[in-house]
Deep mutational scan, measured.
Amino acid sequence: QEELVKAFKALLKEEKFSSQGEIVAALQEQGFDNINQSKVSRMLTKFGAVRTRNAKMEMVYCLPAELGV
């Protein structure tokens, strides 16, 4: 569980995922086979993730800066 949270936060820091499906796929690539869209959705809510525009003006998920991840 701890490893999943770390990987999840690291992915969001990249600010390149525009959908929950993309986050699920990226986590599965890292070996988290039991991850699915509903789990990702709950984690996004739990950590207060928001959708914002990145440098390329794409809408992407990211974590609020005050979490200091």
Rank of each mutant, 00 (worst) to 15 (best):
Q1T: 11
Q1K: 11
Q1C: 15
Q1I: 11
E2T: 09
E2F: 11
E2G: 11
E2K: 09
L4N: 00
L4C: 15
L4M: 07
V5C: 15
V5H: 14
V5F: 14
V5P: 04
V5L: 13
K6R: 13
K6T: 12
A7V: 09
A7K: 06
F8M: 08
F8G: 00
F8Q: 00
F8S: 00
F8Y: 00
K9I: 15
K9G: 05
A10P: 03
A10C: 07
A10D: 09
L11G: 01
L11D: 00
L11K: 01
L12T: 01
L12V: 04
L12D: 00
L12W: 03
K13S: 09
K13D: 06
K13M: 13
E14K: 07
E15T: 05
E15G: 07
K16Q: 07
K16V: 08
F17C: 12
F17D: 01
S18Q: 15
S18F: 06
S18Y: 05
S18N: 07
S18G: 13
S19R: 10
Q20A: 13
Q20P: 13
Q20E: 15
G21R: 14
G21T: 12
E22H: 08
E22D: 10
I23F: 09
I23R: 00
V24L: 10
V24R: 06
V24K: 05
A25Q: 12
A26I: 06
A26W: 08
A26D: 03
A26P: 00
L27K: 00
L27P: 00
L27M: 06
L27H: 00
L27T: 00
L27F: 01
Q28T: 09
Q28W: 09
Q28M: 13
E29Q: 12
E29C: 06
E29D: 11
Q30C: 06
Q30E: 06
Q30V: 08
Q30S: 08
Q30D: 04
Q30H: 07
G31L: 03
G31N: 04
G31T: 01
F32P: 02
F32H: 05
F32A: 01
F32I: 04
D33M: 12
D33T: 15
N34P: 04
I35C: 02
I35A: 06
I35Y: 01
N36S: 11
N36K: 08
Q37I: 12
Q37A: 12
Q37Y: 08
Q37P: 09
S38Q: 13
S38W: 13
K39R: 12
V40H: 00
V40D: 01
V40M: 03
S41H: 11
S41W: 08
S41I: 08
R42N: 13
R42T: 13
R42M: 15
R42P: 01
M43R: 00
M43L: 14
M43H: 01
L44R: 00
L44T: 01
L44E: 01
T45S: 11
T45R: 14
T45K: 13
K46N: 11
K46L: 11
F47C: 03
F47Q: 04
G48I: 02
G48K: 10
A49L: 02
V50T: 10
V50S: 08
R51A: 05
R51L: 15
R51Y: 15
R51N: 03
T52N: 08
T52S: 10
T52F: 07
T52Q: 15
R53Q: 14
R53E: 11
R53G: 04
R53H: 15
N54D: 03
N54A: 02
N54I: 02
N54C: 03
N54P: 03
N54K: 02
N54Q: 02
A55Y: 06
A55Q: 11
K56A: 12
K56Q: 13
K56S: 10
K56G: 07
M57Y: 11
E58I: 08
E58K: 08
E58G: 05
E58F: 04
M59A: 04
M59V: 09
Y61C: 01
Y61E: 01
C62Q: 08
C62G: 14
L63Y: 04
L63H: 02
P64K: 05
P64G: 05
A65D: 13
A65Y: 13
L67A: 15
G68C: 06
G68R: 03
G68F: 04
V69I: 09
V69C: 07
V69W: 03
